[in-house]
Design a protein around this nucleic acid. Structure first.
Length: 570
RNA sequence: UGGGCAGUCGCCAAGCGGUAAGGCAGCGGGUUUUGGUCCCGCCAUCCGGGGGUUCGAAUCCUCCCUGCCCAGCCA
């Protein structure tokens, strides 16, 4: 077969790490079993995609890219009761945002309903499927248990003719929901429960988002998936570990039906991220109970949330590459994601200055009516990003955290009598501190060295500390949303007996400092623009951002060795 | 107590009979107008445990231990 063309976004140069799936593909290519590969990402359109799905997307599309194959996007829409158009749109948006392109390889399981129906009749003709009149409870009862075999359904030996007429009756809507089902005739004594005559068609009088009211019966996942894969000529059908037990059934359908190809199902461990919960149901609960604002709340592990937070898609792709693919259950350290985010943003984010918790500082020997426009690098990592002008004057605002009246050993920020550098500006020395009745610092006074313009001096004296600042009269007020983990529990598999995730919600997952100020250039920021607020972290203009009401989400802080060191020393 | 799968550094993860890759985290040092970035160095005599095969085992055999998944007309 000729390989059809599908474009897949190129990533940066990367050396893929070996994993067991690649080993299988390598072997299949080498043995000549396949000349090229076709994979697929098969989401059910019943919710928003999250970082766990991103692992699967990067895996499937990534394999296709690396092996010069193709990857299909297929909506697994066999249950009209739970699926909606809204979700198929958001899923397509998320996959595109992540940087992958399915070209014209967009499919729906519902595209195959007709074909699937024909296959079902073949199974019946061959005596390999029968219409069963047992209700749900009875089927469960007849199924047996993990340790005891099941019993055959009393309807198991119906004739082909009767089965055919009953099945057609089901299709034609003659029977109520739940009254009958079509079952594969396999083995009620199998130690694998999936093989105990699984239901393959159920009656559902529900309108489908694509096929409307055409169908009264809908195929089950176990039946639909292998056949859809075969029809699409998928070579390697990658899914998660919980489907391992379903593989014999997957193969059974392929072996017992005249399908055009023989895909192989391969299972890998789904992603778990520390301090993060990945279940669609629980995520929905977070939204509905108002713990978060919506599916795209920047604290959510959804792709929509991460996009809004300001996490670059390249960081997620890099993360997916770094975590690898294996069959062992694991919980990936959130720090790794943070690392990927910082690495990407460090290269690309423009540097600006903002003060989250401002204290006024007056430079007493600086002329009151003077304003200078100082040069500031936009990105020391990228000279081509150029420079901008930052206004400087007598009245400034500096960060409360950068002042200590009783500095610990190793402190090189503001302290009485200590000289520090104002980034891009001058050396200053703290001369006086005003405090309120409670001892809180309310105002600072300093002197500057006029010969240190630009932040250096002729004499080459060492000034170790450099702090950020903004000019008080020029600064603009901003809303800075500071995010932290949504949960206080790192590993949800370690949840205490009797507790739910509600018991582990972090009350401080969002904090908003009331008086944050930023340099005036930030008034030009556009929604979605990412910046590094010098010494504070990476921030992205939120969807709520407006030129006269700037709103920034903190994507992540900078690596902070000082606070760790200071914390350790008490 | 049935079946399936997994156990390699704090967290991921290569390794496939020839004597433990890499990343994150951590630690120490250097550069630095971001205590950021960058750079250098350190970080598993040992691969869940016990036996065995072999000149040689994380890799093969065997017994055991631990963890995860399965009894939807969900996917």
């Amino acid at each position: 077969m000729e390989k059809p063309e599908t474009p897949i976004t190129e990533d940066k140069e990367r050396t893929p790490v070996s994993n067991f799936i690649r080993n299988i593909i390598d072997a299949d290519l080498e043995s000549g079993k396949h000349n090229f590969i076709i994979t697929r990402f098969p989401p059910e359109p019943n919710g928003f995609l999250h970082i766990g799905h991103a692992k699967s997307i990067c895996l499937n599309f990534g394999l296709a890219r690396d092996y010069d194959g193709i990857c299909h996007l297929r909506f697994d829409d066999t249950n009209p009761a739970k699926e909606e158009l809204l979700y198929v749109q958001s899923i397509m948006e998320d996959v595109k945002w992540l940087g992958f392109d399915w070209g014209d390889k967009l499919f729906y399981a519902s595209d195959y309903f007709e074909k699937l129906y024909e296959y079902a009749e073949i199974l019946i003709q061959d005596g390999k499927a029968y219409v069963c009149d047992l209700c749900v409870e009875e089927i469960a009862e007849y199924r047996g248990t993990l340790t005891e075999p099941g019993k055959n359904s009393p309807y198991r030996e119906r004739s082909v003719t009767e089965n055919l007429s009953l099945f057609r009756g089901m299709r034609d809507g003659l029977y109520p929901e739940g009254s009958r089902s079509l079952r594969a005739k396999i083995d009620m004594a199998s130690p694998n429960l999936n093989m105990r005559d699984p239901v393959i068609y159920r009656i559902k009088m529900t309108e489908h988002h694509r096929t409307g009211d055409k169908w009264m019966i809908y195929p089950m996942y176990d039946y639909t998936h292998p056949l859809s894969d075969a029809l699409e000529m998928i070579t390697h059908s990658v899914c998660t570990l919980e489907f391992e037990d379903h593989r014999p059934l997957y193969d059974w359908f392929l072996d017992n039906l005249p399908v055009p190809s023989n895909p192989r199902q391969i299972e890998f461990a789904r992603l778990n991220l520390s301090y993060t919960m990945m279940s669609k149901r629980l995520l929905l609960e977070l939204v509905e109970s108002g713990v978060v604002d919506n599916w795209d709340d920047p604290r959510m592990p959804t792709l929509a949330g991460m996009r809004r937070r300001g996490i670059p898609p390249a960081a997620i792709r890099d993360f997916a590459d770094r975590i690898g693919v294996a069959k062992a259950n694991s919980v990936v350290d959130y720090e790794l994601l943070q690392f990927c985010v910082r690495e990407e943003l460090n290269k690309t984010a423009q540097r600006v200055m903002a003060v989250l918790d401002p204290i006024p500082l007056t430079i007493e020997n600086y002329p009151a009516d003077q304003v200078e426009e100082l040069d500031a690098d936009n990105n020391p990592e990228d000279p081509s990003a150029g420079k901008r002008k930052v206004p400087f004057g007598r009245e400034l605002l500096v960060e409360r955290e950068d002042i200590s009246l009783d500095p610990p050993k190793g402190w090189f920020r503001l302290a009485p009598g200590k000289e520090v550098r104002l980034k891009h500006a001058y050396y200053i020395t703290l001369t006086r501190v005003e405090q309120d009745a409670d001892g809180n610092i309310t105002r600072l006074f300093a002197t500057y060295d006029p010969d240190s313009r630009g932040g250096w001096s002729q004499d080459g004296r060492k000034v170790k500390g450099t702090i950020h600042w903004v000019s008080a009269p020029h600064a603009i007020p901003i809303t800075a949303r500071l995010y932290d983990h949504l949960f206080t529990l790192a590993d949800f598999s370690k949840m205490e007996e009797g507790k739910t995730f509600h018991d582990y919600i972090n009350p401080d997952s969002l904090t908003v400092p009331p008086t944050a100020m930023a340099e005036p250039s930030l008034a030009q920021a556009q929604k979605g623009d990412s910046f590094q607020f010098l010494r504070l972290g990476y921030f992205t203009a939120d969807y709520d951002h407006l030129p006269d009401k700037p709103v920034f989400n903190r994507v992540t802080g900078l690596r902070d060795t000082w606070s760790r060191k200071a914390g350790r020393k008490g």
